[in-house]
Write a protein that binds this DNA or RNA. Structure first.
Lengths: 202, 202
DNA sequence: CCTCTCATGTAACTCGTTACATGATTTC
DNA sequence: GAAATCATGTAACGAGTTACATGAGAGG
């Protein structure tokens, strides 16, 4: 609880969108322009947090109006003290429950009706996506994300390592589930070659 | 994918929202009214697919206008043949990529700056949510979801079993990650009591 | 010169949620 | 007869995406 610092407004946070806070977070590592910001988000948290240009520039404006960021020497945006303090308070509040929107899982829910081929196709689609996610995360070299002049030593590496490990762990769990699911289907006599649709490669 | 039947429109799907298709999917199991529909969705796919009342009734209307559902004897909605055919085609198309909106992970990304206590709090919050998810899924008895008169025997059970297994698998992976994360923090001598670290290499 | 990447923005739109409004029926 | 649950809807709002518009600078 006890935040002791006093700023122009008390303990409460301004009602920024989660995306605005995310932007603020990325700027807390080092100043960037909008374009670099977008790239950094895509690269590091891309598959559990998206920021489109349609959001990015308006939100940057909002952050500027709140006095949380200011223009740096070059054309990049940098955190102000107010911004840093606000970010800290945001980080200390419990996160909103994670949301998922998993259409593939919904389809699976009804796919038995459409036939085992459809079911298998869904599982393989999922496997392909999980594999890609895992491989991208594996290929990521921790600590090599940001330009050297902005390195903030081992702590940053820890955070990115945790995020990366999370991505890999969930992807692997997904893959294990795919194995299990396909095995269960096979057990029940369902095989890829059998039945209606031969699935063209997707 | 050889769908041979001919309906008033050719192979292409009408541009329904994913939510509308989901509703159609649930009605393909057995007729329900809006209220029951919502409950079923919440219970079975609640944490990767939400349907609010603000969407539900308008989408039911859309489905009705498309001739995909019709009123049953009681006040429930039931699938038409057209509806069933459309559902099958939808199921056969590749699912949209799964989306996530995981604020907790984003916070973690910047939490080292705010201090190890914040980091630990985030991990524990995540652990609590994952535990709850896993336990709810575990407590679910497969096949007991829907009224007996509508049982469609083993296939439906398979689908729900797969979904349930998926939920449990991902939740457990999340928990394993929490263990690992906390262990890593402990290894580095990071404990909740320590306050904000030294940063700023610049 | 043309194309690609960098860079910044806006307008229209979609999807979805929250909060509200209403009333019937059941249960205590 | 009060409260809870069942049941159906709508209006206002919010967040985010897509597509568009524009232009600078670099490299072929």
């Amino acid at each position: 609880m006890g935040i002791s610092g006093r700023y122009s407004e008390p303990d409460e946070l301004p009602p920024l969108t989660p995306t605005a806070w995310t932007i603020l977070g990325f700027l807390s590592i080092h100043p960037r322009n909008g374009y670099q910001l977008r790239q950094a988000v895509q690269r590091s948290v891309g598959h559990f947090w998206g920021v489109s240009y349609g959001q990015l520039y308006p939100q940057l404006k909002v952050l500027r109006e709140n006095g949380f960021i200011e223009p740096a020497d070059d054309d990049s945006h940098q955190l102000t003290d107010r911004g840093r303090a606000a970010l800290d308070r945001w980080l200390a509040t419990p996160p909103a429950p994670a949301q998922r929107r998993d259409e593939g899982m919904v389809k699976l829910m009804f796919a038995d009706h459409a036939g085992p081929a459809t079911m298998l196709a869904l599982i393989r689609h999922r496997r392909a996506e999980a594999t890609a996610r895992r491989d991208v995360a594996r290929a990521t070299i921790p600590g090599a994300h940001w330009p050297p002049q902005a390195q903030r030593s081992s702590d940053d590496v820890l955070a990115t390592w945790l995020v990366r490990a999370h991505t890999i762990a969930l992807a692997e769990a997904e893959l294990a589930w795919c194995d299990e699911a396909e095995a269960t289907l096979a057990e029940r006599g369902v095989h890829p070659e059998q039945s209606k649709g031969k699935n063209n490669a997707d």
